[in-house]
Structures are given as C-alpha cells and as structure tokens.
Amino acid sequence: MHNFEFVKPSTVADAVAVLANAEAQPFAGGQTLIPSMKARLNAPEILVSLTGIAEMNGVRRDGGALVVGATTTHAAVARDAASHFPALAALAGQIGDPAVRTRGTLGGSLANNDPSACYPAAVLGTGATIVTNAREIAADDYFQGMFTTALDEGEIITSVRFPIPEKAAYAKFLQPASRFALTGVFVAKYASGVRVAVTGASEGGVFRWAEAEAALSSGFDADSIGRLSHPSDGMIADLHGTAEYRAHLVRVMTQRAVRAAH
C-alpha cells in the first residue's frame, strides 16, 4: 500500500476543507477502502477519517423518520435502530460478519454503492434522503449505477433520513463466500404505497421493481406477485448464479420479504 497522511478532523467543516484537495479521500470504517488500497486500486495522498466527527454519528428519531449519522457502524444500527425501525436494524445485523459490523459504516456503504451491498436496498426501498455537507439528495436520484452515485468530488454524506414504514423487511439470499447479497430485496409499506428495491441482481446496481410495487400497493400479500416475473436482461451473471437465476430470485426474495414484513 502506498503511504499517505492520515488526518482525523472533529468537524464537518474541517473535513470538507481538507477534502478540497483532489488527492484527499474520505475514510470511515475502512472495510472496503483498506482492501482496495492494498490492491492499489486506490492511492490517496491524504486520508480524512470521518469517525472523529461527533455530529455524524448515531441514530436519532425525528418524528416519523429515523436519522442515521453516516459514520454509525452496522453494529450500532443493528442495536440502536431496533426499537424504531426493526427491518433496518435486521439488515444491518446481516452485513458481513461481526468484525465487519464493528467498523463498517452506513455512509461508506452508500458512497461505495457496491451492486451487491445491502444498505442501498433499504435507502432506495424507503425513499430515504441522503444528507451531505452541501445538499439533500433523494434516494431515487442518488444511485446512478454500479459504484456510481450523485456525490460530487469532495462531498461527504453526513446522515441519512429514513421515513419509517408501517411494515418492512429485507430478505437476503446470501452469497456465502463474499457474505454480500446474491440477491436481496427490501420491501416497505407506507400509507402512500409500497416500495420494492432490489440489490445484488442488476448490472445497473440497486433498482426499484415497478410491477411488484403496483401489485403490492393494491394488495400487500405475497400471492399478489406470484405470477410476476422479472426479465433477466441486464441481470448479473457470474459463477454464483446466471442472469435467469437472479431474475427468478428477484420474485422469490420479494415474496419472502412481504411475508416477513412487520
């Protein structure tokens, strides 16, 4: 790994000031960035740790929303979101393994936008708002394809505001070697309708399944989507599963999520 200067500011303003340098990169749990720096896929000259910034950490209830700070670890979400938004806590508790959950963070996962990551499904599936140092971004505008997001250079996620659903669940079909989702579906029911977001399946990254949303909005019942099938065009195909297999899993995991929703 190339060497770098490590800085740990205590305010968002100080972090953003250092990140104005094009050679600087944000750093949170390091569970994605350290392996990629070892592989020299990333070689920042300055690494700006965000974990010393108190205002970016923690879970807070705000009326009908749950606000999760970007540096809140998966383990902390699994523990602290449980009484407010159990489906989100359960999702966080299934990420990787206990050691990954000790360090990995919500903001790091969303900035990375791995096509098989779990959090993007919850963020898109709830229509959450991504709050950065500069603006607020709707989930529908945020995810722009595999490893691509609406974030600008030097922009950092500070928190995410999740509207708490009436009922929700995340159903993850585990890819046991990587521990990511082979296909995962987050379903959330609101008074205004149902949202369904799918991760792990598409070459375009996380996406909403409109047909299932329409069917579930008129009847929140796993049988109401029993006849739907998702096309396999653009689905990921690798040694773990063909495009057709993943397309099939999209429906199966959506049904499992609907049955599990509470």
Partner: peptide, 13 residues
Amino acid sequence: GQPVKSCTAFAAD
C-alpha cells in the same frame, strides 16, 4: 471490547 480485523484497521485511527 468489540471484534475487529486487525489487518483492516489503521493503527493511527
């Protein structure tokens, strides 16, 4: 008190 992969954390942090 929490488990951490020591190959995936920087000492300076």
